[in-house]
Amino acid sequence: MTTHASIGADHVTTDPTDPTEPADPADPADPTATVDQDELIRQETTRFLHRYIDEAELRSGDQLITAGLLDSLATVALVAFVERRFAVPVLDEDLDLANFDSIAAIVGFVRRKQDR
């Protein structure tokens, strides 16, 4: 059935056979299971942000949106990345600078969502 979900999808379904899907930290066979989850999210997010921001210009405490490091399209891509990579739905009420304006904020947002 056609749902037109690719534009502005609010909910993301995950495909367990997709190698780009997030690893299950509880899986003992998963080598990332021993890696600190906050650090894993930070690394993944930083790697994504390097698509839009020069590595030399991105520091962990930077304000991504209010400082203008991300434009609108990049911001939408960031939200879609968080939804896909960490399998957390981003609802309208989640679209807040407090959740997306820094790497630390994104890590905190993902962890809070995952803990629910």
Binding site: I7, G8, S72, L73, T75, V76, D92, E93, L95, D96
Partner: peptide, 18 residues
């Protein structure tokens, strides 16, 4: 549609994609 702040980044850009 949505909340203040989502108008352009989500709604307008989504509609403009179509």
């Amino acid at each position: 549609l949505g909340r203040p702040g989502t108008g352009l980044s989500r709604t307008a850009l989504g509609a403009l994609t179509l």
